[in-house]
């Protein structure tokens, strides 16, 4: 998604994960919830911290890949964005752990540039689809679909 001539103003939620500020389009975010006790899932991908019960649905709690915490201690309590994942087959949602929600704002999505062009965040997760330059530093834009990689073949 490189810069285009037309402007495309959309609502965006911005939040902090380990000091880096990220943004995601507001329409993908169902709610912001406190996450307390969660159930650890042995054998789950490393990005999955556990599962919680959200009004009768079992929702995986995920950490953004590439943002591994300094200590391996289980994550105690905090805030998560419940993000709806586009999927043809089923209703998918994950709770993305964040440190703090900074603001809800409008942003010009046409100004989002490829991360490569700015040489930032190369080691970041697949979910980062672009970057928005701002006066107070780059804002990394997350794509909800990137939070849930396609299912791998079992035993492959």
């Amino acid at each position: 998604m490189s810069s285009k001539e037309k402007s495309e103003s959309r609502s965006m939620v911005t939040f902090l994960i380990h000091g880096q500020e990220y943004g995601m389009k507001t329409e993908a975010i169902r709610s912001i919830i406190p996450v307390g006790d969660m159930t650890f899932v042995p054998g789950a991908p490393p990005s999955v911290a556990g599962v919680i019960n959200l009004r009768g649905d079992i929702i995986p709690v995920v950490e953004l890949e590439g943002t591994t915490r300094d200590d391996d201690a289980p994550w105690e309590e905090g805030l998560a964005l419940v993000v709806e994942i586009p999927d043809d087959a089923e209703d998918l949602a994950v709770a993305l752990m964040v440190d703090e929600v900074t603001q809800v704002d409008r942003a010009d999505f046409a100004r989002i540039e490829d991360t490569d062009e700015l040489m930032v965040a190369r080691d970041r997760a697949d979910a980062v689809i672009g970057v928005l330059s701002r006066a107070d530093g780059p804002l990394l834009i997350l794509d909800p679909a990137g939070l849930v990689p396609e299912e791998k073949e079992v035993g492959a």
Binding site: V41, A44, P60, V154
Partner: peptide, 24 residues
Amino acid sequence: KPLRRPIGNIPGLSSATIRPDGSV
């Protein structure tokens, strides 16, 4: 209750349930 992506198929864990206290 199903365990959905990105968890999906884990051999040995078929699914999950919700306990009376609301935990999983």
